[in-house]
Simulated assay, not measured.
Amino acid sequence: MSGTIDRRGLAVTAGTFVIWGVVPVYWHLLKAVPAMQIMAHRVVWSALLVVGWLLLRDGLGWLRRLVAQPRALPALALSAVLIAFNWGLYIWAVNAGHVVETSLGYFINPLVNVLLGVLVLHERLRRLQWIAVGCAAAGVAWLTWQGGSPPWIALGLAGSFGLYGLVRKLVAVDPVAGLGLESLYLFLPALAWVLWAEAGHGGGFAAGWSLGTDLLLVFGGVVTAVPLIGFAYGVRRIPLSVVGLMQYIAPTLQLLLGVWFFHEPFDAARALGFGAIWLGLAIYAGEGLWRSRQRPA
């Protein structure tokens, strides 16, 4: 196997993580809109984009292939609920001033994936992987003690996205086609919420809000769908060990935005908790990279 890396795949994957890293600024521009309405618009417009793209690319072939896998239908319904919860919690947290804690959620997500592998898939961890998980657990325990309660936002984001990844791992479908069916599952409930809000329950699309706000809500579908499609494209073209290291681009940018752009507190006590988690991630990523280089080509 060649040691070269597909440059286009690398660039697309890096761009995907950069978009996910700076997207808090985008949702912050919609701060005047209730989080559930942002979420509903996000689902509606991204569903139209993703399903429209799939229909143009493949007609109804993508849907027929999914329907031919009966096991995939309930699994993707569950993954749709999980990703909707993750998106909704993330948007609410950003606009409620918890960007730093959202970054924590995506820092600990890889180690949550490891624990799910042990508990659900009965995978066995190597010694350094257990040490990495222990460091992350110590960091979360420290942040819980310092804050007086667990970092529920971070744990909710990491847990929901970890479970989402587990479900998608257990059902073998094309990533974009799977996203298309998830979008179909969520479309009608999201559209119903938008219409209910517009019927005198706080909605302002095309009437109460500014044109700029309306356009941002519509373009939120692009902000949602394009990185997911780009990730599905890039991850097939570069080694997973590289993807594993690049995934820390997004929470790193989120943390920097939380501290320097949104001016959220990040004192020494909080930095110590993050430091323990970063140490665990460094051990985990370093061990995985070393193992991948030891394997024969």
Rank of each mutant, 00 (worst) to 15 (best):
L54S: 00
V259I: 15
L119H: 01
G61Y: 00
W53C: 15
M1K: 08
L279C: 14
V22H: 06
A138H: 13
D6H: 11
L54K: 12
V133M: 09
L256S: 08
A72N: 09
W145C: 14
L188F: 04
A158G: 07
A225G: 02
N86C: 11
V218K: 07
W45Q: 00
A141Q: 05
G97I: 15
N113H: 08
V243L: 12
P34M: 00
A138G: 04
R64D: 01
D214E: 02
L157N: 01
Q247N: 05
Q69H: 10
N95Y: 09
N86S: 06
G204C: 03
L184K: 13
G234S: 06
L60D: 05
V133P: 01
P74D: 13
I19R: 02
I277Q: 07
W45A: 09
A11C: 13
Y164F: 15
L56P: 10
L155P: 04
L82T: 04
L181W: 04
E287C: 06
G273S: 09
V173E: 02
R124W: 05
V18P: 03
V235F: 00
T224N: 04
A47F: 09
G212K: 14
M1W: 03
V243R: 05
W260V: 05
A285H: 06
A225H: 08
V44P: 04
D6N: 15
A35E: 00
L111P: 11
A269V: 12
W45H: 08
T213E: 04
Q37L: 15
G156S: 14
L121E: 02
L281D: 09
